[in-house]
Write a protein that binds this DNA or RNA. Sequence first.
RNA 1: GCUCCUGUAGUGUAGUCCGGCCAAUCAUUCCGCCCUUUCGAGGCGGUGACCCGGGUUCGAAUCCCGGCAGGAGCACCA
Length: 487
Amino acid sequence: MDSSLMTREKKEKRTDLPELSISSIEGPVVMRIAPGPSGPLHLGHSRVAVLNDEYVRRYEGRLINRFEDTNPEKIDPDAYRMIPEDLDWLGVEIHDTIIQSDRFERYYEVIRQLTGMGHAYVCICDSDDWRNAKSACECCPCRDQPVEVQLERLDRLMSSHYAAGKAAAVIKTAIDHPNPALRDFIALRQVDHPHPRTGDRYNIYPMMNLSVAIDDHDLGLTHVLRGKDHLNNTFRQEYIYDYLGWRKPTFMHYGLVSIPDTVLKTSVIGRGIKEGQFTGWDDVRTGTLRALARRGIKPEAIRRFWMDVGIKQVDVQVSWDNLFAMNRDIIDSQAQRYFFVPNPVAVDVCFDGEAESHCPLHPDRPELGQRKHSFSGDFQVHICPDDMQELQDRGMIRLKGLCNISHGEICRHAGDDMGVTRQGVKVIQWAPPGSIPAEVLMPDGGLVKGLVEPVSAAAGDMVQFERFGFVRLEQVDTRVRAVYAHR
RNA sequence: GCUCCUGUAGUGUAGUCCGGCCAAUCAUUCCGCCCUUUCGAGGCGGUGACCCGGGUUCGAAUCCCGGCAGGAGCACCA
């Protein structure tokens, strides 16, 4: 038996998410993620995906991906393709996919049913008046019309008799509910905007509280896990469950996520791409999963990160440090080491002899072999400006894996005694003759140019540029292009 | 304004339901030291927190009350 299914002892450390309440459900656990197809997924979205996925795996249940595309004005048609790609990259296993724009008839059926039961009405008041009445706990004139009138109006609404914005189907809750957010809510309205999937076949669209309640019920969801920004939506949706006598899933709400130092908002990124400020959905200045993937952040690190954060209702601020630490832990043993010299300056070294440098491709894995460079007589290497300064100040520096060089009137090979490092001589990376032009794309969008020794890793690999940071190689041929991940 | 949710180190987290083993866990950050021909990895050590005030109790991070603070919602977005 899976030990995680056993009730934990009081003093036992929690290493996992808390248990789901499964005593009251009959079949398997069914959960869902419900992205709006307005763009690709970003780091914030990945939390709900990972957590749902983890639960479904643990209980051997099913995970449904539901595209919530009931607002035709906010849809990017590419998102229907990009989101599954992103989920796949994250390692989230989807057992079923449904699209809300396939289900308009069902939503119409339910709103008609609710109207017939007297739980919904069609309001044809000015929307401001309706809202103002609500905030004063008062009904608008439409609310108390008899059911026959409401059904008639619903027919008219459905046949576009009213102009968009002039009428809406409204779910009754309690007009004097103490929480103003819960007094009557719009369920259905007309939107005159072509839908990328259904064109102009439908122009009556459900609001999310209607479609979500219906779908969650129809799909047999047992648990709904989402952000607590949906708390009031849950309360609204529960009215629909209650009116129709539906059994409710267990609702769980985790705290809000704030992610510093990055652009997350899909609409902002989309606009930025159109206007040329961003290079695309994978622009490293954004927090999309595509951007993180490009930087070499592994999906396993993201998963570990969200598991560590858990499902508490406290708001959290994402710590890039923590995420990077988890990523470093994953990639460190795989990443080959290379010398990259940013903003290189040449150093001519006076030498009459022969030497060969030896640096391991990975310091902890000698079996991977070494990078070797041979020297005979005078030679030239490149080092970065800070190290040049150090060489001048101290008069000596050690080229890692090769030799020491001294700085006087001219620079000289100064032997291979490693003991000098104990006297504080710095050990630096250097670019041998035959190095390749390289540029590293930094998280702020800037480019660091330099030289890198010949690289035997391939595009797509993570490598560590020693004393610079971990990068993901994007191009390796006559030049090297890489994207900075973290230190 | 109203309603709801939440307050443990810089950040994330454990403990809170069922009060004592909590002078509070783990990770990360930061600072030392060791090791290492990287500012990576590894090892050792250190700094650092129970929002405040009352109450109950022999005993409160944990239970109760009151403050305060933060967040969310009050959309014909999701």
